[in-house]
Design a protein around this nucleic acid. Structure first.
Length: 311
RNA sequence: CGCGGGGUAGAGCAGUUUGGUAGCUCGUCGGGCUCAUAACCCGGAGGUCGUGAGGUUCAAAUCCCACCCCCGCAA
């Protein structure tokens, strides 16, 4: 069975590794083009490319896989199966028609909930306590195909998108292998998604990181960890956007208007009054500055309880 | 040459506009107080002020020049 793997970020790497270690023939790894990154715009290869090359797997990169050039290259590989994992491009019907056995996708949610490109982040933002990985047959819709197998895990209360992505990536690799085994055994069953229970969440944008102090501290904390490390959460202050890297939610109300500094001392830490409870900021980054633990930040930028945040 | 911020004691910052041998908060070391403390009091150590035996000046952290490094935004 000749497999063509399609994936881009760190999440996809364990799945590709599992295929290779499992003895599957991976004809090629398709991934997004190298992108300019950082202040100097250095072209940076995506994680899947780096890994594939280290294992001697041919790498293909298309700006748009749907274009004739992409289709032609894929057809030439004569694949039996496509396996996708956080690839980042939508496959056209013509592309989906290429492999004899179809396309299996590894999706980081318990479908049909959290369809879309950022399921892990949105699960955390919404304060979910359980999530998982679902393998599915890709069709022309966005994460709408028939489900195959799934694995579930609990989400830790302080877990952020970075650590959860790592866990789900490993989990998904196992789910993928079980799926392929069942496929080979002929025991694989397809379960249509229940549309009435489906939910779709959009791609992440920077402005989604804005923290509204009028919301409960719990909700703000969920957003902080759900959007870490990218696109990151931030509070708007008079001096600009204050990035909040790590936080903690407290239920006790401060009695202060949301957004004001509730405390800034060693015992209670740096806390911001919220609609309900207070948000303790553990690590932050001021405009133009580097990321700092809250206590270090306070040494150079003392805050007054009851006053607006001062940068 | 995309825009901007910054490199001052172990950490975070002030001081640079109006040049005159460096200050704050914390940490650290020693001592004291206390049933006790992340509390408080007293005392000490610790800085080539990014680099250039650069320029200007009686005098440069501060003004001028060159270079290195870091960070935010935008992509």
């Amino acid at each position: 069975m000749r497999i063509v793997f399609m994936g881009t970020p760190e999440f996809a790497v364990p799945s590709l590794r599992a295929l290779l270690d499992g003895g599957y023939e991976v004809a090629a790894a398709v991934t997004q083009p190298d992108r300019p990154v950082g202040r100097k715009g250095k072209l940076t290869p995506p994680p899947v490319k780096v890994f594939a090359q280290s294992r001697g797997v041919p790498v293909l990169q298309f700006e748009r896989i749907r274009r004739p050039e992409g289709r032609t290259a894929l057809e030439a590989l004569q694949p039996d199966l496509f396996v996708t994992a956080a690839f980042g491009q939508i496959l056209s019907q013509k592309v989906l028609d290429i492999p004899r056995l179809g396309t299996i996708n590894v999706h980081a949610s318990l479908l049909p909930a959290y369809r879309g490109s950022a399921p892990i982040n949105w699960c955390l933002v919404n304060g979910e306590t359980r999530t998982g990985v679902t393998t599915m047959m890709t069709d022309i819709g966005i994460d709408t195909g028939d489900m195959l197998l799934r694995d579930e895990i609990e989400i830790g209360p302080e877990e952020n998108a970075e650590t959860l992505t790592c866990r789900l990536a490993e989990l998904g690799a196992g789910t993928l292998l079980r799926t392929l085994r069942a496929l080979a055994d002929g025991t694989l069953t397809r379960t249509p998604q229940d549309e009435s229970a489906a939910s779709y969440y959009p791609m992440l944008r920077k402005e989604m990181g804005r923290l509204d102090p009028a919301l409960p501290a719990r909700a703000l904390h969920d957003r902080v960890r759900g959007l870490y490390p990218w696109p990151g959460a931030y509070l708007e202050t008079a001096g600009g956007a204050l990035k909040v890297l790590f936080s903690r939610a407290h239920d006790e109300d401060s009695g202060l208007a949301p957004g004001l500094v509730a405390s800034a001392d060693k015992a209670r830490g740096l806390r911001i009054a919220c609609g309900a409870g207070t948000l303790e900021i553990l690590e932050l980054q001021a405009p133009g500055g580097k990321r700092l633990p809250a206590d270090a930040f306070l040494r150079g930028h003392p805050q007054t309880p009851g006053a607006p945040f001062a940068l």
